[in-house]
Computed example of a mutant assay.
Amino acid sequence: MRLRASDHETTVTARGTRGPAVLLVHSLGVDRRMWDPVLDRLARGRRVFAYDVRGHGSAAGAPLPFTMAAAGADLVAVLDALELDTAHVAGLSLGGAIAQTAAVAAPQRFASLTLMAAPDRPVPEAFEQRARLAETDGMTALVAPTLDRWFTPEALEADTEGVRYARECVASFDPAIWASIWRGYGGLDVYERLRDFPAPVLALAGDADASIPVEGMAAIAGRIGGGAKFEVVAGAPHLQTLERPDEVADALDRFLPAEIDIP
């Protein structure tokens, strides 16, 4: 479905007809299809929604510059458009940073928060370097190093469906939008600001993540109020859903409530 998110339109994929609402927020450089491998599992007893973040996919035409504040406001606007007072929100990487930004601004809209390979503070030098490389050399120069951060060597060698999808997304990205997103990502401002967050939190780390190691995600979980439940997805790289979908779905299924059929 198409809906309004703040100052632009986006597209939402929906699965499930009953149960608690779950909103999924994807990583930088891809789009809502990143969640496709886990949607059907999560939709058993839940209503699951995945939307395109501003600057990505069907929301590529959103106004620039990209800012974390605007992306966080978009998440709340999507909840409003879906007529959801609250939802269980899960975000991966940039999606997790956006979810944290929205959680700081509007904690009452969260039934729970799941952070998957998601930072709570930026690395400005690295983010600026990725922005400049897109502007000077174009997206072709970014495809290989980006996929190296996102996938295991085994997946890259096998050229899996997930790798092919991610490669297509990055190669077709507008360099100016890519640069604006990375610079906006550098404005992430949630460090130690979720210590009073009232809802349950799950932090998922991949033990093959080249971007955010297990120790880094464990530290992030420890900075959240009350402590987050922490799990490690065996064999998972940065883009967990595209290489270890069953294991990710298992972890989310254990954490997220669902409406159970009663015989």
Rank of each mutant, 00 (worst) to 15 (best):
T152N: 05
D148H: 14
C169E: 09
H56E: 02
R223H: 08
D253M: 07
L188T: 03
L242Y: 03
R41L: 04
R149Y: 06
A218G: 05
T17N: 14
R18K: 02
A155T: 08
A71N: 03
P107G: 09
L156T: 09
A81C: 11
F127G: 01
Y51Q: 11
E259L: 13
Q100R: 04
R54E: 07
P263C: 09
L94P: 00
G95H: 02
A210Q: 11
R47D: 06
P145H: 15
V104F: 12
Y51N: 09
D7L: 02
R132T: 12
M1C: 08
L84R: 01
R164T: 07
R33Y: 06
D36G: 10
V233R: 02
R132V: 09
P200Q: 11
P237L: 14
V25F: 05
L256H: 00
A179M: 04
A106G: 07
I260Q: 06
T160E: 06
Y165N: 09
G138P: 03
G61F: 02
L242T: 03
M34T: 11
A73D: 13
R121E: 12
G222Y: 10
S211N: 11
G57A: 08
M139W: 08
V30G: 08
P65A: 15
A50N: 02
H88T: 08
L24P: 05
D261G: 15
A69E: 08
G162N: 12
I260P: 00
R195G: 15
I262C: 14
G162S: 14
I260Y: 03
R149V: 01
W182M: 15
E125L: 13
V38Y: 00
H238Y: 06
G225N: 11
P200C: 13
A144H: 09
L115I: 14
T114Y: 05
E154S: 14
L28S: 08
Y165P: 05
L84Q: 07
V232M: 07
V12A: 01
T160C: 09
Y51S: 10
L42N: 01
A176K: 05
L75C: 10
A251Y: 01
A102F: 10
G91A: 10
G57R: 01
R44C: 12
P263I: 08
W35E: 00
D137C: 11
A50L: 04
D196W: 03
